[in-house]
Simulated assay, not measured.
Amino acid sequence: MSADDASFLIGIRSLRRTLHRTAELRFEEFRTADALAAVLRDAGLEPITGVATTGILATVEGERPGPHVLLRADLDAYPVDEAAEHEIRSATQGVSHACGHDVHMAAVAGALIRFAQNPPERGTVSALFQPAEEVPYGKRSGAEAVLEAGVLAPSYDAVVGLHCWPSLEAGVIGIDDRIAMAAKDAFQVVVRGRSAHAASPAEGRDAVVAIAAIVTGVHLAVGRRRDAGDIVAINVGTIVGGSSQSALAASASATGTIRTTDAAVRRRMREVVADVCDGVARQFDIGVDVHWANAMPAVENDPRMVALGRRVLPSVAEVVRMEDAPMTTDDFALLTALGPSLYFKLGVATRGVPAAPLHAADFTVDEECVGVAVEALAALATSVLAERTDPETPKGDGK
């Protein structure tokens, strides 16, 4: 690495630290966007700001027309207080980059700045800094909002994203053969009971007992309605109900998610939730409503981009095949409709040190990963611009 390269990497790591301190929640990433836009302008770029509220789109055009590559990073942080006490600790109480989006932003910015400093001979590289990847129940996806904003091209020759991956060490990149992130369906169960004094429960219909039965029943039923080869994760993450310890609750609700990689299993698991709710409604003589939201398809890697990544990225880092599809989800899935896509896993763990999982209060990264991510994104984009997306059947020169 030359002195200039070293100085550049120091600057990108400094940007990541600034973004880490400035952690903000979905559609509130105003300071984050300002910091990114300032760095991009300093590099001579003219970013489009305010995309879907806080998003940014910046572009570097080559000397001649050619392929168009879209790099994507997510802006928002996660609603968890950072546990570690260190110099770059999040300054926003109760909010931190426990999913590594600060690394994603710094890496995509770094890759685009490299192209700004040395524009490609042909083709175009764009970078989307997307708000609101973290989607609570019933809320809007940031990718959906960006697509509706109409600032993106109708299609791209490649769409590339990445995610910090704590099970991999810094200096390692993981590539999934097909499914990089699972599909997700979010549900809300609302129980309508009847209030009564705790001393005379027969006069009421206890919504809290019913919601407890639903939560337990769903978990048990999934185990009996899945086959050995089915990949399924189900979680109930919130329960709300009641107002007094001395009264039967008139209402209660719970929200959760189902995550799968197969469409048929996905349909069957939705039926499980509905069947359990119907049974509990009859058992407890109460009303139960099930609402579905935030349906998100799986993130599927394009085979040509997988082949490209496995050919190009070993020059940047150790590349490993991811054996099992994860049950995490990402609205990058919506952007894959724009072109052949690759979503790779960026190792962030310090060698020999067990890493905290994503969304944990003590999640952290080894900063070696930042430089690896910049070089990986730049290498992938450079190869696509050279029209080598399929190493076995290269395209013509496009003239």
Rank of each mutant, 00 (worst) to 15 (best):
residue 257 T to Y: 02
residue 18 T to C: 14
residue 233 A to F: 15
residue 395 K to T: 10
residue 395 K to P: 07
residue 244 S to E: 08
residue 195 S to A: 10
residue 287 G to P: 06
residue 345 K to M: 14
residue 242 G to S: 08
residue 17 R to D: 04
residue 124 T to Q: 13
residue 267 R to L: 12
residue 162 L to G: 03
residue 314 P to F: 05
residue 396 G to D: 12
residue 74 D to H: 03
residue 283 Q to C: 11
residue 141 S to T: 07
residue 282 R to F: 13
residue 65 P to N: 09
residue 251 S to F: 13
residue 373 A to C: 05
residue 170 A to I: 00
residue 191 V to E: 03
residue 123 G to M: 02
residue 10 I to D: 08
residue 63 E to N: 12
residue 46 E to C: 08
residue 266 R to C: 02
residue 2 S to P: 07
residue 232 V to H: 03
residue 268 R to D: 08
residue 292 W to E: 10
residue 253 S to Y: 03
residue 244 S to G: 10
residue 68 H to P: 10
residue 184 K to H: 09
residue 169 E to K: 11
residue 77 A to Y: 07
residue 305 M to A: 12
residue 259 R to S: 11
residue 54 T to C: 03
residue 132 A to I: 03
residue 48 I to K: 15
residue 29 E to K: 01
residue 33 A to Y: 03
residue 220 L to T: 12
residue 23 A to W: 09
residue 166 P to Y: 01
residue 284 F to E: 13
residue 340 P to F: 07
residue 47 P to T: 00
residue 168 L to H: 04
residue 207 A to C: 06
residue 110 G to W: 05
residue 389 T to A: 13
residue 209 V to T: 15
residue 271 E to N: 09
residue 228 A to Q: 14
residue 371 G to T: 04
residue 147 L to F: 06
residue 271 E to L: 14
residue 373 A to N: 05
residue 383 S to C: 13
residue 261 T to R: 04
residue 300 E to P: 00
residue 232 V to I: 15
residue 1 M to W: 14
residue 238 T to M: 03
residue 36 L to R: 04
residue 16 R to H: 07
residue 150 G to Y: 05
residue 271 E to F: 06
residue 145 A to D: 07
residue 210 A to M: 02
residue 328 T to M: 14
residue 268 R to A: 15
residue 253 S to Q: 15
residue 167 S to T: 14
residue 302 D to Q: 02
residue 329 T to R: 00
residue 269 M to N: 07
residue 260 T to I: 08
residue 354 P to A: 06
residue 252 A to G: 07
residue 104 H to W: 11
residue 388 R to T: 11
residue 92 T to I: 06
residue 15 L to Y: 02
residue 81 D to M: 09
residue 261 T to I: 15
residue 268 R to N: 04
residue 264 A to R: 13
residue 165 W to Q: 00
residue 322 M to P: 01
residue 159 V to N: 01
residue 359 H to L: 09
residue 177 D to S: 14
residue 59 T to K: 07
residue 185 D to T: 12
residue 67 P to H: 12
residue 91 A to N: 14
residue 33 A to G: 11
residue 105 M to L: 13
residue 275 D to A: 14
